[in-house]
Write a protein that binds this DNA or RNA. Structure first.
Lengths: 215, 215
DNA sequence: TGATCAATGTTGACGCTGTCAACACCAAAT
DNA sequence: ATTTGGTGTTGACAGCGTCAACATTGATCA
């Protein structure tokens, strides 16, 4: 998807032209993705991305109207990777409380593994500021996972009757808050290794879930 | 505080020199604060700040080594304002559960009122990336409020025995997550006015606090 | 087969930015 | 009265996003 200009000979076939790149759009996205994790969204330079692809400074403008548009496309990619990680981590975990825990662990793990991506997804390129349908859909897909898991959790017996949107927002907030703080604050120790982090995410999600139960 | 170079004739006294500004450092911080909320931390330009103070492009370098240093000072200011808001909102509220709720409301209200400040505080200028003692102290002061309130809450009868740092991190995470999402995501409706927002913050904090209780 | 066309690349320029080096001004200490 | 050090200015440099004009190509159609 996202590529259908003429026939797309895909990647530089051997001995190819050297003038026309062949698959510049994807090459730009890949290079930008690398650069993103190296320097962060703020310092991501379009010219540097072009340099890394071996094309001129303005070549990217044939594929992205603006630097911002590149970042938006990158953010959409990031949201898809994010959703993929959550989905695979929670695959086969059908017990609602366990599933919410798994999603929370995946959320935190993704953030720690790709801090710049997370900052990109929720920074000034976030879906709220931009009406790109692709980005909004990618974000929606990710959050639908939390939404649906929360819905199943609320259906468990012994759970307090409450608004689904609010409960979803709460689950989302606690893992998002944890992930954000882990990324850009000096945290009290205890986040050294993956195991400890997952434990912490589980603990906090458990507290939240207990709060959803009837007294 | 933060100003003690020679005697500080403070502000441009009437008919002052016109070459030496008199209180440029504070003027720069004020102008930068305005510009910050207008364009966000990313587009905050040192030259524009200088222009607004009526000085040359390089005058700011007498007071801040670098653009980043200006942002760090601004972030420290923001943390102090943030702590002030939480402190005054929770003033006189001594019942631990109610105090945590009040802090949560203030957290969200501050974020909505000053989104750019929040992004600055937690973005690439956040305390983790910078060892500025001033910034770290300002941040510590803000979070001490949540920490102490959580400590008091854990001391309430009927509360599950658990680690204070984890419980603090959880409370912090849920309000920070909510505030962050409110700032840079398209949220499900319900955040229209201050009253509704405070209600939502209370609801989520209540869920969290219920989770802290023994079953 | 050869001309045309649209997609995709390049060159060169503009104004903006952060930052540096060199210089100007001015208040206070000697 | 002179020196000095803090503060402000001018001028320059390289890097940035972006625009306009031009070049090169593979595909389309006469």
């Amino acid at each position: 998807m996202a590529d259908r200009s003429h026939n797309a000979q895909s990647a530089k076939s051997p001995g190819s032209d050297a003038y026309h790149h062949g698959d510049l759009r994807n090459a730009l996205l890949a290079a930008a993705g690398d650069l993103l994790e190296e320097v962060g969204p703020e310092r991501l330079s379009l010219r540097e991305v072009a340099r890394r692809c071996g094309v001129s400074q303005t070549a990217p403008y044939r594929h992205f109207d603006t630097r911002h548009a590149l970042l938006v496309a990158l953010a959409a990619d990031a949201f898809r990777a994010f959703a993929g990680r959550m989905k695979s981590e929670a695959e086969g975990v059908d017990d609602p409380p366990a599933r919410l825990r798994a999603l929370g662990r995946a959320y935190l793990a993704f953030a720690i593994a790709n801090p710049a991506k997370l900052r990109l997804m929720f920074g000034p390129q976030s879906p709220s500021k931009d009406s790109s349908a692709e980005l909004q859909e990618a974000a929606r897909e990710a959050f639908a996972l939390i939404h649906d898991a929360t819905e199943a959790r609320l259906a468990q017996p012994g759970t307090r009757k409450m608004d689904l949107e609010q409960a979803t927002l709460g689950a989302w907030a606690i893992v998002h808050g944890l992930a954000s703080l882990a990324i850009d604050m000096p945290l009290p120790p205890g986040l050294e290794d993956e195991a400890r982090r997952s434990e912490l995410a589980d603990t906090l999600m458990d507290i939240y879930q207990r709060g959803l139960d009837a007294t």
